[in-house]
């Protein structure tokens, strides 16, 4: 049987899931990485965001066959980094976490945004997280948190 090999949170892994299986299911069911959440399964909410070779993508839309050889980082792996610590601290300070279901995805989007643009304007932050839905916060405290992370994490990004 053909297996699909890729790098997952810094480890070489392989799966024998059919190539059409959704990456989110493989991550959650096979590798027990529960950090990526499924809010829609439709590419609309961003709760399932992961890094695919440093680009943030919705894992519910990616067939696992498409990631052969790629580097995948989920929140479960990202949460072991210094960058994450900074984001977490700023989210806490800004009060940006309510029900939490959107948050792992938001964190991934925040990190992707800051690594591309370490000094985003408010506009740019809003655009950067516009693929991630949050129903609890009205976004303002998340925007504040990212702004704070940009400032406090000066040099990290």
């Amino acid at each position: 049987m053909r297996v699909i090999k890729f790098q997952l949170n810094g480890r070489e892994v392989e799966t024998d899931a059919p190539p059409t299986a959704r990456l989110i299911d493989v991550l959650r069911d096979e590798f027990a990485y529960i950090g990526s959440k499924e809010g829609c399964g439709d590419g609309e909410c961003g709760a399932c965001s992961v890094f695919v070779n440093t680009l943030v993508q919705n894992s519910c839309l990616i067939p696992v066959g498409a990631i052969e050889g790629a580097e995948i980082m989920t929140i479960d792996g990202f949460s072991q980094t210094e960058l994450f610590q900074m984001i977490s601290e700023c989210y806490s300070e800004a009060g940006a976490v309510q029900c939490g279901f959107c948050i792992p995805g938001m964190v991934m989007a925040s990190a992707a945004l800051l690594s591309k643009n370490p000094h985003p304007t408010e506009e740019e932050i809003r655009e950067g997280i516009s693929g991630n839905l949050c129903r609890c916060t009205g976004y303002n405290m998340i925007v504040d948190a990212i702004d704070l992370a940009a400032k406090k994490g000066e040099g990290l990004w």
């Binding site: 990526s36 929140i75 479960d76 989210y91 976490v97 964190v107």
Partner: peptide, 13 residues
Amino acid sequence: KKKDHDGKISGQL
């Protein structure tokens, strides 16, 4: 700091 902050932000809750 919220009681459930760490579990929620890391996705592990």
